[in-house]
Design a binder for these strands. Sequence first.
DNA 1: ACACGGATACTA
DNA 2: AGTATCCGTGTC
Length: 189
Amino acid sequence: MMPAPLRQFFERDPLTCAREMVGCELVWNGCGGVVVETEAYSVVNDEACHTFRRPASREFVARHPPGTAYVYLNYGIHWLLNFLVKGGGEDGFVLIRALEPTRGLPEMHERRKTPTLAGLCSGPGKLTRALAIDGRFHGCDFLGREGATLQLPATPPQVLATPRIGITKAADFPWRFIQAGSPFLSARG
DNA sequence: ACACGGATACTA
DNA sequence: AGTATCCGTGTC
C-alpha cells in the first residue's frame, strides 16, 4: 500500500499535482528516471479528459483512491501511464510524458532498441515501454507495489507551462508542465 | 509525409 | 456489424 505522505501528494487538484510531479524520480523495478514532462487532465470542464466522453473512465474515478495508476492503450500501440488525482479541488489525472533516464539504462535500452539517451524516455509511449508498464497495472496501487518508488526532489526544478500535446479538444489549455531546458522532453516548448 | 494498431463508445 | 475517434512512434 502506498505510503500516506505519497498518497497525500495525489489528494490535490490535477494542475498542482502535475506541476509538482516534475522533478520527482520515478523508479520501477530498477528502471526509471526524473519526471521532466507531465500533463494535467480534469474531470471538470476538460473535453480532452477521458471522463468527458467515457462512462467507464468516470466509473474508474469513482471507484479508486488517489494515486491509482490509470493505464490505457492509445492508437492501438502505446500504453500511457496516468495517476489518478482525487480529493482536492477537482478530480483528474496526471499523465507522465517524459523521463530523464537515471536507473537501469541497459535494460531500458534493451526494451526500446533505441541508440540515444535523449530518445529513451522522451514520450509517454516510450517510457512505458522502457519501464515495461502496460495494461496489467491499470487500476492498481502502482506506487504501493514492491519495486516502485516516487522520490520528491531535494530542490524543485524550474517548471514551465505550455499547451498539451496531441489533443484536439481544449488544445489551448496550458496544462503541460516541463522542466525548463531539459533535453529529455517529448517535444520543444 | 504516412502507416501501424486496438480499445471504447457511438449508431443501427 | 459498422463507424469515428483517440493524451504516439518509427520509418518513409
